[in-house]
Nucleic acid binder design. Sequence first.
DNA 1: CTCCAAACATGTAGTGACTACAAGATTGGA
DNA 2: TCCAATCTTGTAGTCACTACATGTTTGGAG
Lengths: 211, 211
Amino acid sequence: MTLEEGSRRERKKLLTRQAISHVATDLFLQRGFDAVTVVEVAAAADVAVQTVFNHFPTKEDLFFDETGWWTGPATAVREAPADLSVIEALKQHYLAVIRGRLEAGHLATWRQFSATIEASPALQARRRRVAEQMEELLVEALQERDASLSGLTARLIAAQYAAAQKVLEAELAQLLPVDATAEQLATANAELERAVDEVFAVLARGFGKKY
Amino acid sequence: MTLEEGSRRERKKLLTRQAISHVATDLFLQRGFDAVTVVEVAAAADVAVQTVFNHFPTKEDLFFDETGWWTGPATAVREAPADLSVIEALKQHYLAVIRGRLEAGHLATWRQFSATIEASPALQARRRRVAEQMEELLVEALQERDASLSGLTARLIAAQYAAAQKVLEAELAQLLPVDATAEQLATANAELERAVDEVFAVLARGFGKKY
DNA sequence: CTCCAAACATGTAGTGACTACAAGATTGGA
DNA sequence: TCCAATCTTGTAGTCACTACATGTTTGGAG
């Protein structure tokens, strides 16, 4: 739903919801998730505390309110052409995601979000949960695409992709220091694509006898 | 530390700690983690609420108080003979763990613990965190065993093992219904070992061009 | 044996997320 | 115009957890 649709009541509701979310995100990024109380958020948004909980079941939901990125891999699999392997489709999807993230405007924002999560145990816990949901959605998509897939194999592919994503996120964070220059960014970009190749190659061909 | 070691003070401290943990575990298994309050635990153990928190930083720690199984994979890698591949060592370790779990006495207990976790969001969150710690320990062990291993590869192996373990746990839970007979247990055992073979084969050789 | 300081247990008072619930205020539609 | 659904609000409470002050036990020094 956007701000143009719906009845006046619905529009107003969406408006206060967005106001709360916006104000909350600002506060969290500025002062850290754990240092901001829900009472403060409510006061800053000029609503009652109850109103906050009417729109967001938990404090964490105030932070993870953006578009559901966790549906990405599942839809990528669903929309992939039939002749493309699932692993390859997932790889392409992941590459697209990080390329979007590395665009000039998005990088700083993403770093800020990332740092805020890293500083808060509660947000880290929530991120783990979201990753698990992403995995479950991926399992469904995989079985929908190929009904002959055993539950075990589907879950294994999904878990492997989740593992790959996690490792690559760590690599990404390491490759991109907070004060990265444009030139560092270029090399980081190249190195990251190499890392993506390496990781997805392991998914396709395994570790072999080496390890 | 055991009950025979240490000064009287240390023995007493350990005693109350164990009393609290024992009472708490009983209550959690009976009535579910979320339905039991810390106040109740303290009352049942006949100590002050503060005393509970003196011994256990969080309520979840009352449940996850057993011997740290999460160090298993790391020590398995550390103690594996040099000529055994890491993947194979981890596979053997996992097999040993589930064989121990399938032994007559342990199975029912494990199922009870498992069901209690499944029924509590808080415990599930904690399990995810513990799995992450296990992964981190495994990364260290891997790099200790082979200093030439890149951080990326080490993290990838650890994440892949964690993924395998997770998938196999799900399979195990599915293969062993609550009211499993002895005969079902035998077939489940066989099927499970097949699943373990399959999953670790993927780690070694990948998904190939099939997926 | 005495006595002190450290370690452990306890009680009180509070914070912060979250729920239940009852009672306004607004709005869509009959 | 007016009712009922919806949204918002305020109050009171629960529960995990912390800070802190006080009481109690214990190991060890003299």
